[in-house]
Design a protein around this nucleic acid. Sequence first.
DNA 1: GCTTAATATCGAGATATTTCGAATTATGGA
DNA 2: TCCATAATTCGAAATATCTCGATATTAAGC
Lengths: 84, 84
Amino acid sequence: MEWLKDRSNFPPALPEHDGLDGVCVGYIQEKAQLSQSTISNYMGLLKQTGFVIAERHGQWTFYRRDEENIQAFLTAFQDELLKT
Amino acid sequence: MEWLKDRSNFPPALPEHDGLDGVCVGYIQEKAQLSQSTISNYMGLLKQTGFVIAERHGQWTFYRRDEENIQAFLTAFQDELLKT
DNA sequence: GCTTAATATCGAGATATTTCGAATTATGGA
DNA sequence: TCCATAATTCGAAATATCTCGATATTAAGC
């Protein structure tokens, strides 16, 4: 989630992906130094829980943060934990 | 953490504990319906991580929320997760 | 239709967490 | 001093999570 805040945390997008939002699984895997299946699994979970948005373009899946849901989660979490 | 927001979530304090802040482990255990050792373990963790303050009076230990640390955690968590 | 590239899914082993009961420690009162 | 009560610590069983390699799926290019 931290890395996805800034696209420049990853290698530049391929020319044919210029203009597309998000980061492909391969780049995330490379940076995380975990196996492909592990990262795919993680990203699937994050998508399922609403923290990221997945968009498929051809063989690539691009993941990006879902700021709206993140904010909503944070608010709910704060309301739950904080007093009054 | 939710329960500890309001002392009235638990039975009234014993007369000799009147004026003392927090809830004793026994009451928490009763409400949680988990074993005494499990609750003691949990409360120990919450204390260790700074979410609650423990105060021993005689044979009783009273736990209460550490609002300052809770707020600090929430702020740090939000700064980490939220963009910019 | 093949072959290759990028992801996703599946099943399993390693590791971590949850929870318990039993044993231990600490305190207060008869 | 000895007992009862409150709480903590310890060790283990049940369960969940993490992570992987192998396999399957999807899409592109020839």
